[in-house]
Design a protein around this nucleic acid. Structure first.
Lengths: 191, 191
DNA sequence: AGATAACTAGACAGACCTGTCTGCTTAATT
DNA sequence: AATTAAGCAGACAGGTCTGTCTAGTTATCT
């Protein structure tokens, strides 16, 4: 409800600061007061833009979902026309992400973890992202010529999420390459 | 430090109560006071057994790690002598776990998420579990005759953790079957 | 110049947090 | 019977949490 897409400098700045702190330390670990102090913004400004901390978190997840998928799409497009190269570009994107300086796991998996109840709006919002990514993968699989593109997308999703968890646990990029190599093996078997 | 393996009724009861609440709601979401109230135990009793909340959490993760791996081993042993059946029994174990009434994700992935910093003792303890499971998988793979058993174990770990995340997001057991079918495909290709 | 909207600082409520301390009771052991 | 260990209830400290409210300030628009 309420206007979902309004943008303003203060709102954007609050979201950027909140994102940085939440992603670094966790949603429950970071309080509103810290976000306000770091952003240099008054408390009522936050509560004029967001009804609650929960709504702020949901807005951040929705925004991050859009940006992340757009980033994947850009990498896929840059990979050229070959459907196979385009699909595998997702794993290259993954490897680059794991290697970035501020990588700290997947915020959606972490949101699922911090708000574990199935009915919680943050839990559901986080899972929506994974569903959307799986749909992207299914399209890329279909372009490659995979008959059961939904099934293959589901499998690739497992590999990707597993690789993200491993990268968070080890701080190494290797799991992206393992996932990619496994994807190649699986795709060779069906195309 | 301090005696790591002491067991007492009060300590066990505290750990059981704490486990239930932490697993249901999360580590940061559950306070010491709630655990004490639910357990019917005085605060000083808790702090006589554990130096801090953090130490309690670590003790719970270590205990859960032992129990969980023992449960997997039991399932593997019950699967008979065929190395392939024993390896695939892990995925049957997974499916049964996903279907259990109180399944609420993997507490280790959730601990990685709630304590995202690499150096945090809870983060490291949680990851230790994943390393230990991977070692189990490598042994089972070697018994099957997989040459690169460590590599295959790494891949299967990705599938398993991905399946856990998916089961937590969907509350459905299907991801266990997808992971199992993928494992069969991969194993057929190398054995 | 007057009105409107956005932002500010800061107090405030009421609850919760972890961890410590004290004084008392129970139970087992010697 | 005396000692020791374990657990009890509850106060306490010092801080943090989300969210509300007030009153004053800036800036824009008509």
């Amino acid at each position: 409800m309420s206007e979902p897409e309004i943008s303003s400098p203060k709102r954007d700045h609050l979201m950027a600061t909140a994102w940085r702190l939440f992603y670094r330390d966790g949603f429950r670990a970071v309080g509103i007061d810290l976000i306000l102090a770091e952003a240099g913004v008054a408390k009522m400004t936050l509560y004029n833009h967001f009804a609650s901390k929960e709504e702020l978190i949901v807005a951040l997840l929705v925004k991050r979902d859009r940006e992340l998928r757009a980033s994947i799409v850009a990498t896929v497009e840059a990979a050229g026309k070959s459907p196979m190269k385009r699909l595998l570009a997702v794993f290259d994107w993954l490897e680059e992400w794991f290697g970035s300086a501020d990588f700290n796991g997947c915020v959606f998996i972490r949101a699922l973890s911090e708000y574990p109840e199935a009915v919680h709006v943050i839990h559901r919002t986080a899972w929506n992202h994974k569903v959307a990514v799986k749909a992207m993968l299914a399209e890329l699989c279909a372009a490659v010529g995979v008959t059961n593109s939904d099934g293959m997308a589901e499998t690739l999703s497992l590999l990707i999420d597993g690789a993200i968890v491993a990268a968070h646990g080890t701080r190494e990029i290797g799991s992206a390459r393992v996932a990619r190599a496994t994807a190649v093996t699986l795709l060779k078997a069906v195309v």
